[in-house]
C-alpha cells in the first residue's frame, strides 16, 4: 500500500493528539523506511523478509514503542504508535505479496496488479483516516479548507502512484 498508510496515521492522530502527525506517519511507514535503509546499504532483497515479515514487524513495533515511550512517557501513546507500525503489514498483505516468516509462504491479495482496484481500496483507507483526523481538529479548524486540501493531496499522490504503476508495471523499490 502507498498513501493508504497515511490514512492510518491520520486516524491515530485522533487518539494521540499530543504526538506530531509527522512521527505517526514515520511509524506507519517504518517497514518501508527500513527497506530504504537496506537499499542504501545494498542489503535490500525483494522478499522483504528483513522489513515486512511478521518477525520483522514485531521487532519494528517494539522498537517504535520503546522510542515513543521514552519520548512521551505515555504508555497509551506508545501503544498507539506500536499499533500504527504493525498496521503496515495487514495493509500490505492486501495490496501486495509479502513474506510471513523465514521459510514460510508469501501471502497477499496483490491488488497492485489492478491499479483501479488499488486506488479505490487506498482511497477508502485514506478517506476513513481523514474523517477521523478532521474530528480531532478543534471546532474552528474543521471548517477550514486546508483539511480538504490534505485529502485532495493524498488522493492525488495515490492516483499518480497508480498511474505510474499502470505505465511501468515492473518498477521495483530500489
Amino acid at each position: 500500500m502507498y498513501v493508504g498508510h497515511v490514512g492510518v496515521a491520520l486516524g491515530a492522530k485522533r487518539s494521540v493528539p499530543g504526538v506530531a502527525l509527522l512521527w505517526l506517519i514515520v511509524a506507519a511507514y517504518l517497514p518501508d523506511w527500513t527497506d530504504a535503509a537496506l537499499c542504501i546499504s545494498g542489503k535490500y532483497r525483494d522478499t522483504g523478509m528483513l522489513s515486512h515479515s511478521l518477525p520483522a514487524g514485531a521487532l519494528l513495533m517494539l522498537l517504535a514503542a520503546a522510542v515513543a515511550l521514552l519520548a512521551t512517557g505515555d504508555r497509551f501513546a506508545a501503544a498507539v504508535v506500536a499499533a500504527v507500525v504493525v498496521s503496515h503489514l495487514p495493509l500490505d498483505y492486501v495490496s501486495g505479496l509479502k513474506p510471513t516468516w523465514p521459510g514460510g509462504p508469501a501471502i497477499g491479495l496483490q491488488i497492485y496488479t489492478r491499479p483501479v482496484v488499488d486506488f479505490a481500496t487506498e482511497a477508502i483507507v485514506i478517506a476513513a483516516g481523514w474523517v477521523l483526523y478532521t474530528r480531532s481538529l478543534p471546532a474552528g479548524l474543521r471548517r477550514w479548507n486546508e483539511s480538504h486540501v490534505m485529502l485532495a493531496a493524498l488522493l492525488g499522490m495515490q492516483l499518480a502512484a497508480d498511474v505510474a504503476r499502470l505505465l511501468y508495471p515492473s518498477i521495483n523499490k530500489c
Binding site: V6, L21, A153
Partner: peptide, 11 residues
C-alpha cells in the same frame, strides 16, 4: 513525499 506533505499540511 508521502511523509512530509501531509505533515506539512497538518502543521
Amino acid at each position: 513525499l508521502v511523509t512530509l506533505v501531509p505533515a506539512w499540511l497538518d502543521w
